[in-house]
Design a protein around this nucleic acid. Structure first.
Lengths: 157, 157
DNA sequence: CAAGCTGGTTCTAAATCAAGACCATGATCC
DNA sequence: GGATCATGGTCTTGATTTAGAACCAGCTTG
């Protein structure tokens, strides 16, 4: 056996994405970062994650260009973690998870945090799937076209 | 320490969602199911997952109402796993992961599977965040409103 | 009814994870 | 300018999870 499968060269983008952020903590760290958390200790306190885990995860996310480690903006000699634009683009994944959770994991009266339009403080609209021309699509109206088999699969690194 | 944190009563819908499907395999199983896979052996072969893991994951996903186990549609005595509507609603999460992976994890020439509109075989449009009135929103134009503190937090069960 | 498929369960070893001790800087206080 | 605290980690130690393979019982096919 050895280690968990390596999906970083999978032909399916879903698998590659999960290879990076499919673990227990990464998306929670990214969620916090999207809400403005940027210091090691702040992540650690917000999430209750073990410090060693957090250090590992941040290192990995920096290596993969999702975070960058920059000098702290408050002028101190410490550093902070900022999402790159690649990392920020994960906000749609977080929103999709949020909306699914809101729809299916809460009782009708149960309080929950909400993502709102900053101007009007109204909840954002549910995400929808659209065709290239803007038509709304249901899931059964789509299909996955498999990739062509690759000339040379994982050519080392 | 003991076991991984229980997020099933978290006030944040993202955390609750990840509590169910934030592990290494669940979303890959769901991705396959969305593409029509429904038999135990088919999942196992498609994913290369250990059989014990797969059995555990499917049991858990059935327990949480994401799959249901139904008699096989081919008339045999075997069973198959079908997504419930709750499970099907995860397609937006899978699409978000797919689009992020397409945008950030592939070289320009590297082949990949694509999600297309079944009628025209054109790729679907990128997901976008919209306000309640349909205006496009960028991430910085939104914020997360925290939930009211709950009267009685996790009341056993 | 024998052989193979299906859908699991159980076992073991390895890897991962949580928790806390420890430590090296940098900042603060006096 | 030395003591003390905060920051941002690393290291060690067990518990839990995971991968992989072996095993097994109920269908199904020939």
């Amino acid at each position: 056996m050895v280690k968990r499968a390596d999906l970083s060269h999978a032909p399916c983008p879903v698998a590659r994405s999960l290879d990076l952020i499919g673990d227990w903590w990464s998306l929670l760290i990214i969620r916090d970062a999207l809400e403005g958390v940027c210091r090691f200790t702040a992540f650690q306190q917000s999430l209750g994650i073990a410090r060693g885990m957090l250090a590992d995860r941040l290192r990995m996310l920096v290596d993969h260009g999702i975070f960058q480690s920059v000098p702290a903006s408050d002028g101190s000699a410490y550093r902070e973690y900022r999402l790159t634009s690649k990392g920020e683009d994960l906000h749609l994944v977080v929103v999709a998870l949020r909306q699914w959770g809101e729809a299916h994991l809460y009782g009708p009266e149960e309080p929950r945090s909400a993502l709102v339009d900053r101007q009007r403080l109204e909840p954002v609209a549910p995400l929808t799937l659209q065709a290239a021309d803007g038509r709304a699509l249901q899931w059964p109206e789509t299909r996955v076209l498999k990739a062509e088999p690759f000339p040379s699969p994982p050519p080392a690194r």
